[in-house]
């Protein structure tokens, strides 16, 4: 019984993670400029990868493997925002203008 619940829970988590990753990828393709694309990819990556890793950790159970998976998640939580920040900063330093809707008059 517990095994079944754990199995189901891990699959729900993995599928939810995949959903967020797909949304992020669509955003990466469809958004108009660097900053909005970064917003789409950076935000969804943290949660999507986190959920997938959590789901995999449930599959692995109380082993060293799940400790490693959680460590990878902690690492991602640190690197992902810092990386996104560095990218946005580089874009600004390279004078990339943010996308704006042209005004109508």
């Amino acid at each position: 019984m517990t095994v079944l619940v754990l199995e189901g829970l891990s699959w729900v988590l993995i599928l939810a993670g995949v959903f967020f990753m797909v949304v992020g990828s669509i955003g990466l393709l469809r958004m108009p400029d660097v900053y909005t694309r970064l917003h789409a990819a950076g935000m969804t990556d943290s949660i999507g990868a986190g959920l997938i890793l959590l789901g995999l950790a449930l599959q692995a159970g109380f082993t060293l493997i799940s400790v490693r998976l959680l460590l990878i998640w902690a690492f991602l939580l640190l690197t992902n925002p810092v990386g996104s920040y560095a990218l946005a900063r580089a874009a600004r330093a390279g004078r990339v203008r943010p996308f704006t809707v042209p005004e109508r008059d």
């Binding site: 690492f75 640190l78 690197t79 925002p81 810092v82 920040y85 560095a86 900063r89």
Partner: peptide
């Protein structure tokens, strides 16, 4: 300066 986030992030990452 505005690199403070990078500096703190790198300081946390490099030892690991």
């Amino acid at each position: 300066d505005d690199r403070v986030i990078l500096r703190v992030g790198a300081k946390m990452l490099v030892p690991f």
